[in-house]
Structures are given as structure tokens and as C-alpha cells.
Simulated assay, not measured.
Amino acid sequence: MSFKPQHEIHQRRFGRNLGVGLSLGAFVVLVLALTLVKVTSSDFKFPQNQAADQN
């Protein structure tokens, strides 16, 4: 049993999907890296509890 060759539109769609997937992956890595840099910096402080400030 052999498969039929892919139509041209499927090849173009795969290329476009691959590009979108790689772009999305790069964006996720960028956000993760920025978050890690912000959290691990020495001047990072958790916000004070606002409920305690209002009393």
C-alpha cells in the first residue's frame, strides 16, 4: 500500500504552520527568559500585601 503524493497546497500549509509554530515557540522562550531574569535579579521584591496596608 503506497500513499499518494501530497498536493502542493498541503506542502505550503505545512511550511506556514511550521513558521507559525517556531515563532510561537520563540515568543514563549523569550517570555520565560525575561521572567527568569526579573525574578532572579537581586533587587526583585514581592509586592506588599495591600490588604494589610489599608487597615
Rank of each mutant, 00 (worst) to 15 (best):
G15I: 02
A26C: 11
N49T: 03
L24N: 08
G15A: 14
L18T: 03
R16E: 06
H7K: 11
I9M: 14
A51P: 01
H10T: 10
K45L: 09
V28F: 15
L18E: 12
T35A: 12
N17Y: 03
F27G: 04
P47F: 09
A26R: 01
V29E: 06
S23Q: 03
F14C: 02
A52T: 04
N17V: 00
G19H: 14
P47S: 11
F3D: 10
Q6Y: 05
R13P: 00
T40Q: 06
I9C: 13
R12F: 07
Q48N: 09
T40S: 11
G15Q: 14
H10Y: 12
S41D: 03
F44A: 04
R16P: 00
D43I: 03
N49A: 05
P5K: 04
D43W: 06
L24P: 00
V39R: 11
L24R: 09
F46C: 03
L24H: 01
Q6R: 05
I9P: 01
N17I: 00
L24T: 15
D43F: 04
N55V: 15
L32H: 06
G15F: 01
H10Q: 13
L32Q: 10
P5F: 04
A52F: 04
G25S: 06
N17C: 03
D43R: 04
R12A: 07
S41P: 01
T40P: 01
V28A: 15
K38A: 15
M1C: 08
G15D: 11
R16N: 06
S42P: 02
V29T: 15
